[in-house]
């Protein structure tokens, strides 16, 4: 968590005049970031769901044993 917080702190800094970025101006950054994040979050949600289902199965097998 320390690494995450350190990063977020650094990202939040405004140290000087910010220049216009070509890719950000055209909107490509935000579309790419959005699509990549949604795909990744989909994988995480899938893993969470699978994790939980397996946990239920493990519990049931333990109880039956």
């Amino acid at each position: 968590m320390l690494v995450v917080l350190t990063n977020l702190t650094v990202l939040g800094q405004e140290q000087g005049p910010k220049l216009t970025s070509v890719a950000q101006e055209s909107g490509k950054y935000w579309v790419t970031t959005g699509v990549a994040s949604i795909i990744f979050l989909g994988i995480v949600v899938y893993l969470v769901v699978q994790d939980r289902k397996i946990k239920q199965l493990e519990k049931r097998l333990e109880e039956e044993a």
Partner: peptide, 13 residues
């Protein structure tokens, strides 16, 4: 961490 690297890695100019 992966989500952070995706967002920061793409968003920082």
């Amino acid at each position: 961490l992966v989500l952070l690297s995706l967002i920061a890695g793409l968003a920082i100019p």
